[in-house]
Nucleic acid binder design. Structure first.
Length: 586
DNA sequence: GCCGTTTTCGGCCCGACTGTTTTCAGTCG
């Protein structure tokens, strides 16, 4: 599907998910039973979100039909895929249909029916061929197509060929803020809310969904399509419009009546899976939900606020970050929703860099930035010597930095500055600095920066061994992924989390927008294993400490509460927690 | 293809917009 690389579930799970997704696409183009198509889609999602390795599950004899959306047939296909790497049913579908056709489904405006028509009638299979057919005027001749559609298909395909499909949440935020501020100035406009995956704090967003309420008539749709950043108007009606901004970001605007804002917010915040589950839940109770409200028969019983929608269903308010159909409705019904960690709960940052290695600001500047954010403590954790490229610190340099930190602490009323290091985990799991150097530090953040392609077994062993060091207090960016540019290394995350738990080591949720490592599903594993998270900025510049909020968003998506995050503690409590870990590791 | 404290068969979420149409299909969210 068209999502950027995201969570890093075990690779066999991803292989199965990819096959089911492709089968779903191909069945759709063949015009198969829509519910069968959806069954494959749902199964792919189940596999993507399953934290445990399906291969291991099979080896342990786990009954896969207990998984949501997996029945006898799909369980058999999973077994086949894990065992052979192939799926005979997919091979059969591929023989009937050229391999590139499914790519066309990613083009906005092209769904399975139109793709099937283009392929059957014009024999076009690739985006490039569709583009040529559009330019030759062949598409307009097709039944159900026309000149206008030919033009829009041509332009959509051209855009598709040119662009990346999702952008980082942090990159979208400035656009969202500026556009929302612009819309708030339009006469009559009352409320402007950015909904969609943006509001759910997903690590990347495909587009922005903006909801607007107004009193009486308002020119908001007209003003929206004339926003200076708009490159192209994709659609425009009385109640909604879609545009593409100059930087390629698509934005959908919807004007909703104030009495329906809550229902519309639920609807357009999604996720789609949450909405489907919520509707089903409503139907079981004789209620119907749409974007205008909650209805019992023809009578509208709720809709002005999101809380009213959930209340009408007998549920407490479900925070947007949880709305992924990952058990939140059941938890809400049982009164077991988590009290999610908030940005204001964060008391300190346990991972920042300075100019002593590859940071861009001085120690004093980093401390000042932490003070501006009202943090109680900040740990200076520059790289160790192995990172020659970033002038990693050896024992002597570290002692010198310690003296600087003492001086900085003495003259500032700001946050307490902790002495730390981001020490490299070497190939064999040993650390890049001797124990007697690490012993003198307040905090030791251990990290993998090399040999990303070790086998799963070797990588896991290497990290587990590092966690055996008595002085390691945090495992940094545990999967090593860079969202846009580097896949996570293959590692048994459950084993790592359990080891960290037993050793009193915090698992870092690196809040840098390019990392966001751990993922939301990994956070959920940390929670279930009763391990401890640390949300850290990994700031390489003073302004980047503020990225902590993206880490909080990711943690909330993983159901994390304040008590499960080490750096929500006061400094004395944090020190006690660190000491406790050290005693566990003795 | 999945699912079931009514069911092993007959359901499976719903409305707006667009472009093609003359009553609707396709796509999207």
């Amino acid at each position: 599907m068209g999502v950027a690389r995201r969570a890093a579930p075990p690779l066999p799970n991803l292989a199965v998910a990819a096959i089911f997704d492709e089968m779903s696409d191909r069945l759709a183009i063949e015009g198969a039973n829509p519910f069968r198509i959806r069954a494959y889609r749902n199964a792919a999602r189940t596999m993507q979100e399953l934290p445990a390795d399906v291969k291991t599950m099979l080896e342990h004899g786990t009954d896969l039909t207990t998984l949501p959306g997996i029945g006898a047939d799909l369980a058999g296909k999973i077994r086949e895929i894990v065992g052979t790497g192939k799926c005979a049913a997919l091979e059969a579908l591929r023989r009937r249909m050229p391999s590139a056709v499914t790519e066309l489904l990613k083009v906005p405006g092209l769904g399975p029916k139109r793709v099937a028509t283009l392929w059957h009638e014009l024999d076009v299979e690739t985006p490039e061929q569709v583009l040529r057919a559009a330019r030759d005027g062949r598409i307009r001749e097709l039944r159900g197509f026309g000149e206008a559609m030919e033009k829009s298909i041509g332009s959509a395909v051209a855009t598709h060929l040119a662009k990346e499909h999702r952008i980082a949440l942090a990159a979208a935020q400035p656009y969202a803020d500026a556009l929302a501020a612009y819309l708030r100035e339009v006469p009559g406009v009352k409320e402007v809310v950015v909904a969609g995956s943006y509001r759910r704090m997903r690590e990347s967003v495909g587009d922005l969904d903006i909801l607007v309420t107004a009193s009486g008539a308002t020119p908001v749709v007209d003003r929206f399509v004339r926003y200076p950043e708009v490159a192209e108007v994709l659609a425009s009606g009385d109640k909604r419009a879609s545009v593409r901004l100059i930087r390629g970001l698509q934005v959908d605007l919807r004007l909703v009546p104030p009495e329906s804002l809550g229902a519309a917010l639920v609807y357009f915040t999604g996720s789609k899976a949450h909405n489907i589950a919520l509707r089903r839940y409503a139907l079981e109770r004789g209620l119907k939900i749409n974007e205008y409200g909650v209805f019992r028969g023809a009578k509208r019983v709720a809709g002005a606020t999101e809380a009213s929608v959930y209340t009408a269903l007998g549920l407490p308010f479900i925070p947007p970050e949880l709305r992924e159909d990952r058990g939140e409705i059941e938890a809400a019904r049982a009164g077991r929703l988590p009290r999610l960690v908030e940005a204001s709960d964060i008391r300190g940052d346990l991972h920042v860099h300075t100019r002593a290695t590859d940071g861009r600001n001085t120690l004093d500047e980093m401390v000042a930035a932490a003070r501006a954010l009202r943090l109680d403590y900040v740990a200076i954790t520059d790289h160790s010597r192995r990172q020659a490229m970033s002038h990693g610190l050896g024992p002597e340099a570290l002692v010198a930095q310690g003296r600087d930190i003492d001086r900085a602490s003495a003259r500032s009323a700001g946050p307490r500055v902790l002495k730390g290091i981001e020490v490299d985990i070497l190939d064999d799991g040993a650390l890049d600095l001797p124990d007697d150097v690490l012993r003198g530090l307040d905090i030791v953040v251990a990290a993998v920066h090399s040999r990303f392609n070790l086998s799963r077994a070797q990588q896991t062993l290497r990290i587990l061994r590092a966690l055996d060091n008595p002085y390691v207090s945090v495992l940094a960016h545990p999967t090593g992924r860079l969202i846009a540019s580097r896949d996570p290394y293959d590692v048994d995350m459950l084993a790592v989390i359990r080891k960290a738990k037993s050793r009193g080591v915090f698992l870092e949720l690196n809040a840098h927008p390019e990392r966001l490592d751990l993922t939301d599903t990994h956070c959920r594993m940390v929670k279930e294993e009763h391990a401890m998270l640390a949300i850290s900025s990994d700031a390489h510049a003073a302004a980047e400490i503020a990225n902590l909020r993206f880490g909080v968003g990711q943690a909330r998506r993983g159901w994390i509460e304040a008590g499960e995050v080490a750096n929500t503690r006061s400094l004395p409590d944090l020190i006690r927690l660190l000491d406790h870990g050290r005693r566990l590791r003795k």
